[in-house]
Design a protein around this nucleic acid. Structure first.
Lengths: 208, 208
DNA sequence: GTCTATAGTCGGATAGAC
DNA sequence: GTCTATCCGACTATAGAC
């Protein structure tokens, strides 16, 4: 067969989770879209909770090392980076996901946002656990670029940034429709990201 | 009795919706916290969906007129406002909610965020319907303060701003805990909002 | 590994007595 | 308006045949 059951489940699950959230996506819906048997989810993943983590993990495994590597370069380089460079390092891996998988960037950011805001908190722990090291390196890179900013302020502004990006993605379908109707603008994910960069860079670089 | 059934349901529902999201909050959980009968929800509100809208409406009715009034003043004043003034007008009504109700500001922003990102989209329509006019006046006020910015850019930057605030609120419990552990900072909602203002103002005011 | 069948739970909603 | 009792659909998860 062209694609294994496990992979078909992951593909269908990530799309539906991103569209509808975790709670509103049943295993029945996933397996019917994936055209596999209902019981196969529990056979391959054990439970719905573990399926959710597996979906997230597939992205985190690809994304985090790329970001981390770039951050380490900023930290260890002879010249201090500027904020714009640090941000680009966050961005290239994001767009890289789009090359590997159609709508991959938007999907990943949506899942990240849902993982943060959905109810129970086990997902937040799961994400921050796999995000913590990279976050720390990002913090060090920003500190080199903008030494006047305290670690606390870096921490907060990074999460403001994450919030901006994640929320924008989460409501991007609706926002794109409005922009299309009101301003005659057709925006894709990459254009949206390019719109948000000046906003984020100015925010992180704002005077204290 | 001290408080009517309808009001007890609304109070319990808004707290639980903000904490756990709409999908993960059952009517049974709400009525047990409110100490009312399960059937009373359908008697007073008709359905769970209508209860959710009633919860949001109670905040929107209080918040929107205050913001709208302030925006109209900026639009009609003789002198053009600056961005910071426009933002303050958004902020005072937010903090006003905190006076009427404990944690009201955080709760409202959480509900707003969940309404935007939760699955079906009927809530997004409900919110934008009651938000549209104010949004339009906000847009006009920003245009006066920063005429170089196109309407499209104002639109996008306003939603970036909404995203920042809403996501920050949605994960504020977790973030406050981290800040407390890592930086020895005890942050309340008002302090958090004051941290986010420079970020937002710089973002909205960023060069194009 | 994949299927059917079903156990067991929980959800929203409502009928009808008071 | 409030209660009990219940319907009925949907869900996760698993046992067991193939």
């Amino acid at each position: 067969m062209r694609q294994g059951t496990k992979s078909k489940i992951l593909d269908a699950a990530e799309r539906l989770f991103a569209e509808r959230g975790f709670a509103d996506t049943s295993l029945r819906l996933i397996t019917s879209h994936a055209e596999v048997n209902l019981a196969s989810v529990n056979y391959h993943f054990g439970s719905k909770k573990e399926l959710i983590q597996a979906v997230l993990m597939r992205y985190l495994e690809q994304f985090m090392p790329l970001v981390d590597e770039a951050m380490l370069q900023h930290i260890e380089a002879d010249n201090a980076p500027n904020l714009k460079q640090v941000f680009s390092s966050f961005l290239d891996p994001l767009l890289e996901i789009n090359k590997v998988k159609k709508h991959g960037t938007a999907t990943f950011l949506l899942l990240l946002g849902r993982g943060y805001t959905d109810s129970q908190g086990h997902l937040r722990r799961f994400i921050t656990h796999h995000f913590g090291e990279v976050l720390s390196h990002f913090q060090q890179a920003v500190r080199r670029a903008y030494p006047e900013l305290s670690d606390s302020d870096i921490f907060w502004r990074l999460h403001f940034t994450l919030g901006t990006v994640v929320f924008t993605m989460a409501s991007s379908t609706a926002l794109k429709d409005i922009a299309s109707a009101d301003f005659n603008e057709d925006i894709n994910t990459e254009a949206l990201i390019k719109k948000v960069i000046p906003y984020l860079a100015a925010g992180v670089g704002a005077p204290i």
